[in-house]
């Protein structure tokens, strides 16, 4: 057991955890932030994408201790109160999701992209988003949602 301190969605958090706790377990079970999903468990599908100091990572492969001293952003942390993040708004408007299970990961990955590259080309969007699998949409509307959000900014 050890204590980790991190900034979680802008708020300081201090928690005692097992050494082998995965970040996805810490978020979903200890912090009850179930917007972060777990699916493939091997870092491929992207359902568990969260931002660590602004960088997208697989929470299913990250040790929770590695979040110690750092900032973690989950889907619960990107809206401004009741005001949705422009990407959330854009995914809604352009049908960038269907079943919704991959959506938190898609939106966080897209946020990291637009933070680093506010006006990506379509090819840059595809390359960056390649790691976030979606079985419902065929990706077209996800790419459209991100491109529209980038245009709106």
């Amino acid at each position: 057991m050890r204590t980790i301190k991190l900034t979680l969605n802008g708020t300081s958090v201090s928690r005692e955890i097992e050494d082998n706790r995965l970040l996805v377990e810490f978020l979903r079970e200890d912090m009850k932030l179930t917007g972060t999903k777990e699916s493939c468990g091997v870092g491929v599908c992207g359902a568990c994408t969260v931002l660590l100091d602004g960088t997208p990572i697989s929470a299913c492969l990250a040790l929770a201790v590695h979040a110690d001293g750092r900032a973690v952003t989950t889907i619960e942390g990107i809206a401004d109160g009741d005001r949705l993040h422009p990407l959330q708004e854009s995914f809604l408007r352009h049908g960038g999701f269907q079943c919704g299970i991959c959506t938190p990961g898609q939106i966080l990955a897209a946020k990291a992209l637009l933070d680093a590259n506010p006006h990506p080309t379509r090819a840059e969007i595809q390359h960056w988003m390649m790691g976030n699998l979606c079985r419902c949409t065929g990706y077209y509307k996800i790419i459209e949602s991100i491109a529209a959000a980038a245009g709106a900014e």
């Binding site: 917007g35 889907i75 049908g95 999701f97």
Partner: peptide, 21 residues
Amino acid sequence: VMRVDGIAKVTGRALYAGDVD
């Protein structure tokens, strides 16, 4: 029209079986 389950899904609030505690 926007999906009736849309806001829940883009905010991570939609409750799937694995989210039930």
